[in-house]
Simulated assay, not measured.
Amino acid sequence: MTGTFTISLDLELHWGGFEKWPLDQAKRSYFDNTRELIPELLRQFEQYGVHVTWATVGMLMHTKKSELIENFPALKPRYKQSELSAYSFIETQGIGNNEEEDPYHFAHSLVKKIPDYKGQELASHSFAHYYCNEEGQNVKEFDADCKAIQYAARKYNQDLQSLVFPRNQFNADYLKVCHNNGIKIVRANPVDWWWNTADGALKESKWKRFNRGLDAYFNIGGKTSYTSQAIKKEENVYLLPASRLLRPYNPKETFLNQKKINRIKKEMSIAAQNGEFYHLWWHPHNFGLYPEQSMKGLAEILQHFKSLQNKFNMRSLNMSEIADKLDKTALSNTTPIS
């Protein structure tokens, strides 16, 4: 049995939190650092042979505002809390005319690099950072959003096959729409209760966030690696559980920074030894405050993968590659991949 290591990244820039992050000078610097890191991340992943799914907000895929507006879906999410809408943000706060003028809401020059690197998959994080568990929106509006990002991806000669729900608002009722729009696999949340996102973006309790953070350092949750039997299929879409959020370097955490890296390495080792899946994820902008230190921690993880590859023949696959493997296994009616 062969263990599988996968990474999925939520590429959002300011679209990931426009409703709560004023775009002041500090936040601009944060996203400037993020943009500088992305080419280095691509080089590092290729160097270590790590295949990654880059779940990207569709609005970032455009070169200019007029093109973005032209690609708006006819149906837009009618959230009860209108501040959650990217369209409302554009109307009330405004964005620049192109990437040169506004590199926080446009990222064509970065997005186009992704498919050029071996094993890197361009995937969907919805067109407009769509929240699937918020009051007011509905499945028809989500369907329009799915169609809009697939249309945007055609400029890159890509048919998006993988999806990560923004803010991890997994909604099983929307899986049929995903399938109808070409999606074969989505990232599912870890099983621990603090990853339940049914409450929506603005109602999440501090207690839930506290436990989620605590679990990064101490073993208060369940086992993070899993066999192929744990990858369920609903409405013809595979549900690939997340294992662990890679939290960035924090100077206030002293020894805890290394503790969380060591914990991830230990979990990867368990997956490699048992022939299981291990699914790491984060947002590239998480590295925006302390990029050098955060990249150092990531390098340690990537080097550990190479050692597991050499010792246990561990492999790396992106999400769509995992879906392809699962499909082939089902067609051949052999033992599920693990």
Rank of each mutant, 00 (worst) to 15 (best):
G288S: 09
E276I: 08
F277E: 03
D116K: 15
N196S: 04
F305R: 05
N181L: 05
L245H: 13
K233A: 01
A242E: 09
Q293L: 07
F72N: 07
Q229R: 10
P115Q: 10
N211D: 02
K266N: 12
G96D: 08
L60Y: 08
R154W: 09
D10I: 03
H304V: 00
T224F: 00
C146E: 12
A172Q: 15
I301R: 03
F89S: 04
K80F: 09
I264M: 04
E70D: 15
D145M: 04
S294A: 13
R28F: 06
A172W: 10
E134A: 09
F89K: 02
N189C: 08
E101R: 05
E67I: 11
N33V: 02
E134R: 08
F255A: 14
S8D: 10
K147W: 01
G49E: 08
F277T: 00
Q273E: 15
A74E: 15
H14F: 10
K206M: 11
Y217P: 02
N274S: 13
K155G: 13
E99F: 11
V139Q: 14
L163Q: 01
P241L: 05
L84K: 07
A271P: 00
I301C: 02
L23Y: 08
D199K: 13
S126F: 05
A216V: 09
V164K: 03
F255K: 12
I261K: 05
D215G: 00
A153W: 06
H14L: 12
L75G: 06
A201E: 14
Y217K: 04
W15I: 01
D159C: 05
C178Q: 08
S205Y: 10
L331A: 14
G297Q: 13
F255M: 10
A55K: 03
P73R: 10
P190E: 11
M295I: 07
L326A: 07
Y117H: 13
A107R: 01
V111N: 01
L110V: 04
F142S: 03
M1G: 13
A330D: 14
D327W: 12
N219T: 14
A272D: 11
L298H: 04
H51L: 04
A230I: 06
D10K: 02
A271G: 06
D116C: 11
K155C: 02
L326M: 15
A216L: 15
N262S: 14
V237G: 10
K208L: 10
L202N: 12
F255L: 12
H129A: 09
N196G: 01
K252N: 14
P248K: 04
A55D: 13
N219R: 12
I264C: 05
Y238A: 01
A123H: 01
K311N: 13
W194G: 02
E40D: 12
D324G: 04
M61H: 07
N274Q: 15
A144S: 15
T329M: 06
A55T: 15
L23G: 05
M59E: 06
I270W: 07
H105R: 12
P284T: 11
I114W: 11
W21S: 03
R212K: 14
S320N: 12
Q258C: 01
D173E: 15
H51G: 01
W207D: 10
L41R: 07
G182D: 03
E46L: 05
I337N: 07
R187K: 07
V139I: 15
I261H: 00
N180R: 14
Y226M: 08
